[in-house]
Every structure is written in structure tokens, then in C-alpha cells.
């Protein structure tokens, strides 16, 4: 059976793509952010995943508002990145794993998650930038991938408790796959930020740090909050942290922290990084 080697949660901001393209990793503005990644890369080199299941939200590249899925999953042999309109470089295609994707789809629908299945899917910066941060400059990316999109854009969004259960079902789907593949689960987005309205620039460091800590010790803690609560506490785009919660759910059981980093700001965002391993 496939093995979950651990999980990594990380912020995604298009701006990071531009910093990478311009080699700004040592620039004083960017250094505190990029310095978080070497320990994660070392951990990845040690656990050697074959596949990354990437839980993220699309920002108007693959999905438009005509048809917006709550939970969507890719089942393609290859996923292309494309122009998102804000001028960050487009990255080469990512390899999929069609058998594994369909196994997950069967298992998730069997467990009563009402998936949208996608045999073609464009992946945006929320998918590509984390992989670029974990495996810098490695093209093609050394892992096969399964993209899973959670709607964090058009309300109503799935509530935090549902996301956690969804994550657990993802974990069971991975572990029931008849394969010796090693799988890393990646959740991207957050942490606190708000891009729109007079409250733009909103950051809640106290909540973010509590969330990161609780994600290790008591992941159900955040399920006490409703989506409107999370908007209030973390900003309209801060709700993306439900992707972190989903990824945490997939790790099934107790975890220990491998590495964490937190830095404000990257553009308008409080950036977080949390690498976890099952104990």
C-alpha cells in the first residue's frame, strides 16, 4: 500500500514567482521567507516522495465563476501551467498519475465526497510555486502530482470541519492504493491576508501562530470557527488556510513538527511554512 511520508503547508503568492525569476532570494525583503526552505528540502531528500498530492485553490485560471466546484480533483497525465495575467513566468508541465487519481476519485466518492473530476486541468501559482520552492529549478518536477482544488473563492465555501474530514478521506484514499509509492501531502494558501476592501492589508499574527501550533497538537481546534469567523479573523483570502487543514487531515493521526517558519509580510500576506511528519 502507498505510504504517506508527511505533509507540508505553505503560503502561495504570485509575487514569490517573480522573486524567484529575478533571483531575489538573498534580498533583505525576501531572505526571511526563503531561509525557511532549506530544512524542508533536506527533509524531502530524506523521505524521498514519488508523488505529491497538492491541495490548493484556483485563482481564476482553470475554473471560472460559471461552474465553481467545492472539491475538484485532477485525473490527467499532465498538468500545464499557463499565463494568469499578472506577469509571472510560466513553468513547464507537471506529470500526473492517472491511475492514482482515479483510485482517489473512486475512494472519495465512495466515502460520500461529491467530487468534480477533471481530465484536463490548468494549474496556477498556488500549485506551481510551492513545488518550485521545494524543488527549486528542477524541471520537470521530480514527483508525480495530483492537484486537488478547494473552493475558497466563491461563497459558500466548505466549512472547516468538512475540510478536515475531506483531508482524512484523502489520507485513507492514499493509504488504500495498492502501490509502494511514497506520497507527500501539500497544502497551500493563507495565512492571514486580505486583498480587497478598506480592510486590505489585514494581518492577524496571533491567530496565525496559534493556528500553526494547533495544527500539530489539536487540528480540530480550528473547526470551532465558521467560515465567516475565519474571514473576520484572518481576512477574505486568509480563509485559504482551510487548504492547510485539509492537508493536515490527510496525515491521519498524530504528527510532529519537522520545521516551521513564519514571516510578515510577503506582499500583503502573512507567510507560513509548516512541515509535519506522522509519529
Amino acid at each position: 500500500m502507498a505510504k504517506i511520508v508527511g505533509g507540508i503547508n505553505v503560503t502561495h503568492v504570485p509575487y514569490i514567482g517573480r522573486a524567484i525569476a529575478n533571483n531575489l532570494q538573498q534580498d533583505p525583503y525576501w531572505k526571511p521567507f526563503f531561509d525557511g526552505f532549506p530544512p524542508v528540502r533536506q527533509w524531502l531528500a530524506k523521505v524521498k516522495p514519488d508523488i505529491a498530492v497538492v491541495i490548493y485553490n484556483d485563482h481564476g485560471l482553470n475554473f471560472f465563476l460559471d461552474k465553481m466546484p467545492t472539491f475538484a480533483i485532477g485525473a490527467a497525465a499532465e498538468y500545464n501551467n499557463a499565463d494568469e495575467g499578472w506577469g509571472i513566468p510560466t513553468l513547464p508541465p507537471y506529470q500526473g498519475d492517472v491511475d492514482f487519481s482515479w483510485h482517489m476519485i473512486d475512494s472519495l466518492i465512495e466515502e460520500e465526497f461529491d467530487m468534480v473530476t477533471c481530465q484536463e486541468m490548468l494549474v496556477d501559482h498556488a500549485f506551481t510555486i510551492p513545488l518550485e520552492l521545494f524543488w527549486p529549478g528542477q524541471h520537470p518536477c521530480p514527483v508525480r502530482t495530483v492537484p486537488i482544488c478547494v473552493n475558497t473563492v466563491q461563497f459558500p465555501l466548505p466549512k472547516p470541519a468538512r475540510c478536515f474530514k475531506f483531508g482524512q478521506a484523502i489520507g485513507r484514499a492514499i493509504e488504500s492504493w495498492d502501490s509502494d509509492a511514497r506520497v507527500v501531502v501539500i497544502g497551500t494558501g493563507g495565512l492571514s491576508h486580505q486583498l480587497d476592501g478598506q480592510r486590505a492589508g489585514f494581518i492577524n499574527k496571533e491567530f496565525d501562530l496559534m493556528f500553526m501550533e494547533k495544527l500539530i497538537s489539536d487540528p480540530l481546534w480550528v473547526t470551532r470557527y465558521s467560515i465567516p469567523d475565519l474571514v473576520e479573523l484572518t481576512g477574505t483570502q486568509g480563509v485559504e488556510l482551510i487548504n492547510w487543514l485539509t492537508a493536515r487531515g490527510a496525515l491521519l493521526g498524530e504528527v510532529a513538527k519537522v520545521h516551521a517558519n513564519y514571516h510578515v509580510p510577503i506582499s500583503n500576506t502573512a507567510s507560513g511554512l509548516l512541515c509535519m511528519e506522522s509519529v
Binding site: L65, D66, K67, M68, P69, T70, F71, F113, D114, M115, V116, N151, Q154, F155, P156, L157, P158, K159, R162, K165, F166
Partner: peptide, 18 residues
């Protein structure tokens, strides 16, 4: 209905045009 049913753990696809 979308709001209520999604709160009740049904993962609908929300359609604004079809």
C-alpha cells in the same frame, strides 16, 4: 439552498451559467 446544503457537507458545484 447551496449555502445550507454545503454547510450540511454536500460538496456542490456552484453554477452561474449553463
Amino acid at each position: 439552498i447551496a449555502q445550507s446544503v454545503i454547510q450540511d457537507d454536500f460538496d456542490l458545484c456552484i453554477v452561474n451559467k449553463m
